[in-house]
Amino acid sequence: MSLDDLETDVELAYDDLDDYAFLDRESRQELAMLGAALDADTDELLRRAIHLLFQSTTESGRLDFHLRSTYDVTYDEYLSGMTFDEMTGGTSVQQPDDDRRYQF
């Protein structure tokens, strides 16, 4: 394969992104390049991107920062269904909601 083949594949992938009109031009171009280079479905690339963003946000502590700022809880507290105070006996404990027990 050559540079011309890559350019053609990226252009074709870009043209296939009509359903993603919410993306800006740069994001569409990057998504087209990833689709061509990785030979992956666009929906699969978006799923991977979400997982990667979630993982990096969680590992860096930014998720906990934003959760604490907005909801006054951390991700661990969300997963356990109780706050740190409730875990240590500081307040009354409610039964955890098992639907929220997503393990990262």
Rank of each mutant, 00 (worst) to 15 (best):
M1E: 14
S2E: 10
S2I: 04
S2M: 04
L3K: 14
D4C: 02
E7W: 08
E7Q: 15
D9W: 06
E11S: 15
L12T: 07
L12E: 14
L12A: 09
A13T: 07
A13N: 09
D15N: 14
L17Y: 06
D19V: 01
L23S: 04
R25C: 03
E26G: 03
R28V: 06
A32Y: 05
M33K: 12
M33A: 14
L34M: 07
L34N: 07
A37E: 11
T42C: 08
L45K: 02
L46M: 04
L46P: 02
R47I: 04
R47H: 06
R48I: 12
A49C: 15
I50W: 09
H51Y: 13
H51I: 10
Q55H: 08
T57G: 03
S60T: 05
G61P: 03
G61D: 00
R62A: 14
R62E: 15
R62S: 09
R62I: 10
D64H: 01
F65K: 12
H66D: 09
L67S: 02
R68H: 08
R68L: 07
R68V: 04
T70W: 09
D72T: 10
D76K: 10
E77G: 02
G81F: 03
G81N: 00
F84Y: 15
M87Y: 13
T88N: 09
G89H: 02
G90A: 09
T91Y: 11
S92W: 08
Q94P: 01
P96G: 00
D97V: 09
D97N: 09
D98P: 15
D98Y: 11
R100N: 14
R100S: 09
R101F: 10
